[in-house]
């Protein structure tokens, strides 16, 4: 096991784990950042989505060896106090039910809006359909993304 330096939420962490350890388990078991969830371990459900240099990635599919040198953001580091427009919009649209998939959904939405400040419904559907919410919060998520997009385009002071 070699030491690897990872950048998570702007902070450097040196971890000593097997090279093939997925980032997901480094976040959860080694660093105690449990906001990122395990849902399937095979990249199908999206619960473990984090940002890598602003892009949405599945942390269960990124081995430690491929994680060095990239800047990762997890739900815990998205904003101080839940103030990111996506988090605010999620609360304002009353999206969450059980809430388990929501960190992954919010991270996916953040990456979508970063690249497409004005996404079409078709694009929202396409991007968000890579993730699973068994409670069925999709209608509210869709509205939250519209709302967050609007806030990001014309932020209120």
């Amino acid at each position: 096991m070699e030491k690897t330096e990872l950048t998570i939420n702007g902070a450097k962490h040196v971890v000593q784990v097997d090279d093939d350890t997925p980032l997901l388990w480094i976040l959860r078991d080694t660093l105690g950042l449990t906001g990122t969830k395990f849902g399937c371990g095979v990249g199908v459900c999206g619960a473990c989505t984090v940002l890598a240099d602003g892009q949405a990635v599945r942390s269960c599919q990124i081995p430690c060896s491929a994680a060095a040198g990239r800047n990762f953001t997890t739900i815990e580091g998205l904003s101080p106090n839940g103030s990111h427009p996506c988090q605010r919009a999620w609360l304002e649209e009353e999206v969450a039910q059980c809430g388990f998939c929501q960190p992954g959904m919010i991270m996916t939405a953040c990456a979508l809006l970063r690249e497409n400040p004005n996404p079409t419904d078709g694009l929202i559907d396409k991007v968000m359909s890579d993730s699973v919410c068994r409670c069925g919060t999709y209608p509210r998520m869709r509205r939250a993304i519209w709302r967050a997009a609007e806030q990001m385009r014309s932020p209120k002071q």
């Binding site: 449990t34 906001g35 969830k37 839940g82 999620w90 609360l91 929501q102």
Partner: peptide, 27 residues
Amino acid sequence: TSRIDGHDIVTGKARYGIDVKIPGMLH
């Protein structure tokens, strides 16, 4: 009425069964 635990959910602070960690715990 908004969910009493909504803020915890959107900030990743909500702790589910899978998030429990106790001293000396194995997997």
